[in-house]
């Protein structure tokens, strides 16, 4: 299967009072047809900015996509005229946000919002749109779907609202769904319901870009993983291989620092220090000030992505077989 979406050297920066803040620094990765790709990292690592750039939703000013390209089925979304971009949004690529309350209009009934979305993108009568919307509310597991059409967003629980958002994103049957922390605000039993819905979509050959800070969610859901740290991609590869033997010291630290439901509690192997501010990244490798395996070269030069077999790669000088080691 080929790549549905190719992000190449995407750089996004924000103008702030304290200077230029680079939120995504030459980010590159592909999303294949019909796969669930996990984009994982801690808050501020640039994963949401990357996702928003795909649909050109970065507020500008202060934000600016400085360079790079985002090819969707071979066409550069960053070069598309506004009218064509509108057709891509929602219809070909749709997005589910962490907080459905900010994505749904509080002033319109749930049903009206669904019907409006359908009519905006498809030639469909109001009555037909309404019955299609009810059908999708049922598919995402909303009980008494027909009655819920008349509900206001605030009358629904967080889980219900997220399901309405999912119905809205899914009913146009897009080729790609970008889900930005779709379950972070939800309870674990509701999270499991939402994730099963996303897996259903994958089975219908929709691709999913799952953005999350939760390595457990990535493990459960994704076939491939891209790890970001401090605005850069530090590692990418198939999930099984990456979890079995992570290449980058950051990925290794992230996995080791997780408490487990099975193991009895000893001290956790925490990563020392904290994520640096984007205004104050260390020179060289951005992880160099926290890395247990740091050596001279890491503090002066930026490591490129060294590739390994099975489509794996990591941006770490430890993988540079030709170069000067520690």
């Amino acid at each position: 299967m080929g790549a549905l979406l190719q992000i190449q050297d995407l750089t996004v920066a924000f103008e702030t009072d304290e200077g230029r803040l680079c939120a995504a620094d030459r980010v590159s990765f592909d999303i294949e047809e019909g796969e669930v790709l996990g984009l994982v990292g801690e808050s501020g690592c640039g994963k949401t900015v990357t996702a928003l750039s795909i649909l050109r939703l970065i507020p500008s000013p202060p934000g600016r996509i400085e360079s790079g390209s985002i090819l969707f089925r071979g066409r550069d979304l960053l070069a598309l005229p506004a009218s064509e971009l509108r057709r891509v949004r929602g219809q070909a690529i749709s997005m589910v946000f962490q907080d459905p309350m900010t994505a749904l209009s509080p002033l319109h009934r749930v049903g009206d919002q669904l019907v409006e979305t359908l009519q905006l993108h498809q030639k469909i009568g109001r009555r037909a749109a309404r019955s299609l919307a009810v059908e999708w509310l049922k598919k995402v597991g909303i009980p008494a779907a027909a009655e819920r059409m008349d509900a206001w967003p605030h009358q629904l629980s967080g889980g219900m609202r997220q399901r309405v958002m999912l119905a809205m994103a899914l009913m146009l049957e897009p080729a790609l769904i970008i889900a930005d922390e779709p379950t972070t605000a939800l309870d674990v039993t509701i999270q499991a319901q939402i994730f099963n819905l996303l897996l259903d979509m994958k089975d219908r050959s929709t691709s999913v870009l799952l953005i999350t800070h939760d390595m457990g969610a990535v493990w459960a859901m994704c076939s491939r993983v891209v790890v970001m740290y401090a605005s850069r991609v530090v590692e990418a590869g198939p999930a099984e291989a990456l979890f079995r033997a992570p290449l980058h010291p950051y990925t290794q630290g992230l996995l080791r620092s997780m408490p487990s439901v099975q193991a009895p509690g000893g001290r956790l192997e925490a990563i020392p220090g904290q994520v640096p501010s984007p205004l104050n990244y260390p020179t060289g490798c951005h992880f160099s000030d926290r890395c247990p395996k740091v050596f001279g070269r890491c503090r002066v030069a930026e490591p490129p992505l060294y590739t390994r077999g099975e489509g794996r790669g990591a941006a770490c000088f430890l993988l540079d077989e030709a170069g000067i080691g520690p």
């Binding site: 999270q191 939760d214 457990g216 493990w219 459960a220 997780m258 487990s260 439901v261």
Partner: peptide
């Protein structure tokens, strides 16, 4: 059963 964690 709903816990998402590596190894599960």
């Amino acid at each position: 059963a709903a816990v998402l964690a590596p190894g599960q």
